[in-house]
């Protein structure tokens, strides 16, 4: 079976020192599914996404992205770490959008978008430049290609960051609170780009505090607290008719 665009986790556990930040996480994301992860700060949303992007190594459990064990190869008795190059190849198929954008400040918007294809995949420059311009246009930033990140507003920077991820043709996109660092009036433009992406069938996992967005766009909403998945289901159920007391309390405080 082709696992492209899927994420699968079973019994995933991650701790920093003695502090367990993710415990017995089970996750099954189908190709093209939109999953919004909600929960209070420190609930493990970001760490979960960072694990799926390979930025953090998990302690225990199964984690498969695009149908492959992430960063490791399963043997009958253990998981053997992959070579750096193999891990990098896996990562090119996963896109990550950060809360603080993390655009390369020494490159223009266009160069940021080109950086993946040219510097990682060795794609020809002229072609990558055309592709970068097309991607910038698709996120509503036509004509901003020559601007450096510091010349762009937060919302524009975040849209460049999305274009940069898309330039690698990922099969899974991860968004780590993509609008939390933005001015309120800039949030909409980034959400619009993400909505557009969702309609085109991209698998997306989104840690977010935007409940309206989750209700409208998500196929599945996951509520996390204290490193555990407390509740999982359709947005109408989790957001509209929560079963767990903890979920009710959180939703009351944010809505």
């Amino acid at each position: 079976m082709n696992g492209d665009g899927t994420v699968y986790a079973r019994g995933l556990r991650k701790s920093f020192g003695d502090r367990v930040v993710l415990d017995s996480i089970d996750l099954e994301v189908a190709c093209g599914e939109i999953v919004c992860i909600i929960g209070p700060s420190g609930s493990g949303k970001s760490t979960l996404l960072r694990c799926i992007d390979g930025l953090e190594e998990i302690d225990r459990g199964v984690l498969r992205v695009n149908g492959e064990d992430l960063g490791f190869r399963e043997t009958p008795t253990s998981y053997q770490a992959l070579k750096r190059k193999e891990v990098a190849a896996q990562r090119t198929r996963i896109g990550m959008v950060f809360q603080s954008f993390n655009l390369f400040p020494n490159m223009t918007a266009q160069e940021n978008v080109m950086s993946g294809p040219v510097l990682v995949k060795g794609a020809p420059k002229a072609e990558s430049r055309r592709r970068a311009d097309a991607l910038l246009t698709s996120v509503g930033l036509e004509g901003h290609g020559d601007h450096y990140p510091w010349q762009l507003s937060g919302g524009q920077q975040q849209r460049v960051a999305i274009a940069r991820s898309l330039a690698m043709d990922p099969q899974v996109m991860l968004f780590d609170e993509p609008t939390s660092a933005l001015d309120p009036e800039r949030v909409g433009e980034v959400l619009a780009v993400m909505k557009d992406l969702a309609q085109r069938g991209m698998t997306m996992l989104i840690a977010t505090h935007e409940m309206g967005f989750a209700r409208e766009v998500a196929d599945t909403v996951i509520f996390m607290d204290g490193g555990l998945v407390v509740e999982k289901g359709k947005p109408a159920d989790v957001l509209g008719n929560p079963q767990e007391a903890r979920t009710c309390k959180f939703l009351e405080s944010v809505l």
């Binding site: 992007d53 090119t92 950060f98 990682v120 940069r164 690698m168």
Partner: peptide, 11 residues
Amino acid sequence: QIEAADSLGMS
């Protein structure tokens, strides 16, 4: 910055 580069699969 390093995480963004890692995430793109940069060597």
